[in-house]
Amino acid sequence: MPNVISADGTIRQDNWTVVARPEDGESLALPNGPCLIPVDLWLAGHEHFAGRDDIGVWFDSHQEPEHLGERANELPVVAVNFPKFSDGRGYSIARLLRERYAYRNELRAIGDVLLDQLQFMKRCGFDAYALRPDKDAAKGQDCLNFFSQSYQAATDTDLPLFRRRAS
């Protein structure tokens, strides 16, 4: 089983399976155990999935979090797919889920997730990271805390550095 890095740097086994979008004409097949399904399919079958703590969703980078909106906290895990490391739209999705929709459960980065992105993802609200398979999860803690201070406000602190120093 692959590993997931938590925001505090601990490494744990990932027991959530990411379910790929079914091809046209195919139906959604859920594996045994906890799984993450495409957000639009969860919304389409919301009444079928309601109340299940073994179903989470994943966003693709082009999808808008307002479609999920206030329903976000019904989900134990929301994942955001980074199709390539240079696609930064997932950072905006994370900030919107945390700040506008007050999502408080696990927010996970999946896809092309690299070690040097972890601290920036954490600042945007992610608290779990499924690294690309060729990356070493043991280096995750160092990467999450590479900088001791940040200049700007983000989800982890609502005050910029100059305001924190003035206090």
Rank of each mutant, 00 (worst) to 15 (best):
W16I: 01
L131T: 14
A109K: 06
G140H: 04
Q141S: 11
G33H: 04
D136F: 04
D8G: 00
I37D: 12
L114Y: 12
P160A: 10
F162Y: 15
P34F: 01
R123W: 15
N15E: 09
L118G: 10
R108H: 10
C143H: 15
D112N: 13
P38W: 11
Q149R: 14
V77Q: 08
R98F: 10
D53P: 00
D8R: 05
R163N: 05
E23S: 14
A94W: 08
D116E: 08
V80L: 08
N81G: 02
T17A: 08
D156G: 06
H48I: 11
I37R: 12
R52N: 10
I11F: 06
R123A: 06
R165L: 15
P76Y: 12
L28S: 03
N145Q: 07
F82V: 03
G88Q: 01
L161G: 00
T10F: 00
W58S: 01
Y101I: 09
W42V: 02
E74Q: 13
G9S: 02
A166P: 00
D116F: 13
Q117N: 13
S61G: 05
H48W: 04
K84T: 01
R108Y: 03
L161S: 01
L114F: 14
P38H: 11
Q152H: 10
Y151Q: 15
P83K: 12
A102L: 13
L68E: 06
L75A: 09
A154T: 11
N73Q: 08
A29L: 11
F146A: 15
G69N: 10
G25M: 03
N105F: 04
G9H: 01
G33N: 04
R164P: 03
L159R: 13
Y103Q: 09
F82W: 06
D54S: 08
T157Q: 12
C143D: 08
L114D: 05
G9I: 00
Y151G: 06
V18F: 04
S148R: 14
Q63E: 15
P22M: 10
L68G: 04
A29G: 00
V39T: 14
V78R: 05
R21P: 01
R95G: 09
R52W: 03
F126V: 15
D127G: 14
G9C: 04
A109N: 09
C35W: 12
R123Q: 14
W16Q: 02
S148N: 08
K84N: 10
V80I: 15
A72N: 05
R71I: 00
N81L: 12
L28K: 11
A153K: 15
D24Y: 01
E74G: 07
E64F: 05
F85H: 07
G33S: 04
A29P: 01
R12Q: 07
L107H: 11
N145G: 12
Y129A: 07
